[in-house]
Amino acid sequence: MKFEEALHKLERIVEELEAGNISLDKAIKIYQDGMLISKQCLELLDKAEKKIQICSKDKDGNIKVKSFKEKDNAGKD
């Protein structure tokens, strides 16, 4: 699930639970769903690993992706 979808789902669950016109069983069920999705959302935010890459052309003109060192950039202003 994409983060955005998960967040929307969570919003809807909060709305539904706050509206209150559902059975107690349903309320407990969606409360549990909401808690699970919250956890998934937080996990999604931390899932990706920081990565800075740069494209470069080899001698045949093919584009290769390699890691970008920020120090490559230092002192070149």
Partner: peptide
């Protein structure tokens, strides 16, 4: 341009907002 203030500013702001961001630079 892969050198200079522009890329540095961009990376700096991304880092501040979302430390595990992913960037691919096309110089």
């Amino acid at each position: 341009s892969p050198t200079g203030a522009v890329i540095r500013d961009i990376l700096h702001v991304l880092e501040r907002r979302f430390e595990n961001f992913r960037v691919l630079i096309y110089p």
